[in-house]
Amino acid sequence: MFLQQLVNGLMLGSVYALIALGYTMVYGVMKFINFAHGDVYMWGAFFGLLLARYTGPHFLVILPLVMLLTGLLGAAVEKVAYRPLRKAPRLVVTTSAIGMSIVLSNLALLLIGSETFPLPAMLPVRVFHIGNALINTTQILVLGTALLLMAILYWFINRSRYGKAIRAASEDRETAGLMGISMDQVSSVVFFVGSAMAGAAGLLVGIYYDAVYSTMGFTAGIKAFTAAIIGGIGSIPGAMIGGLLLGVVENFGASVMSNYTDGIAFAVMILVLLFKPGGLFNAYIYQKRV
């Protein structure tokens, strides 16, 4: 039982981690919570659904396309709703983000509908035993893909030219600007990459639960945000660990009180915000005083 919970928790957690990366990257560079991020994740699932209908259920074709589409969607959201507000107070940006979240979630509702759609199976289902825990091919697919994407992202942030620019902009926006790093470009890249990860997560969750619906972004968004603050918002490895941790905690909690599964995440979020707002690893988030 313990092992089974752990496996389920890690799988779910790896998805939270994927989404959390977007929150943390945006916060790192632009210092605001992208409320529309959960809805980009939901669009990832919808893109997956549409693509599966047109191209057939080929995971390896659908995944990159979904990531491309959600990446572009995220970059477009940044350009339309956040870029004009870069010098505005944070309250204004946050409100714009909430507006964008309403736009994206309702667009899905209007264009595709309020039903829950099943996704066609992408692989034959096989079940394996590890000790006394069961794990099926879908779970392996989800966990494997999520871990692989995180590894790629980790490489991208630490090794690539853009990754360095992003890290520089997170450390100190003004200096980075003076060093010739274009904030426009960095923001676009951050939103593209973060949204692509969220889109992939949406697809994976859609496959795992065999369900895609227009309100799936809200709860997932909050949980991923919780993961991001557990790890210390702004920190990329923190988001990954935070996601896995939250997934496991939630799974064990749910086995005790199943009606309040989502409540666990909310409670964890509020507790972390109140008592360890810097996250478990005490990343920098405090606003300067005076």
Binding site: T94, M269, P277, Q287
Partner: peptide, 16 residues
């Protein structure tokens, strides 16, 4: 909490 942190914490209370 300030700004958007407060927003998300109050959101959490609303969900509870």
């Amino acid at each position: 909490l300030r700004g958007d942190y407060l927003a998300i914490a109050t959101l959490g209370f609303g969900e509870i």
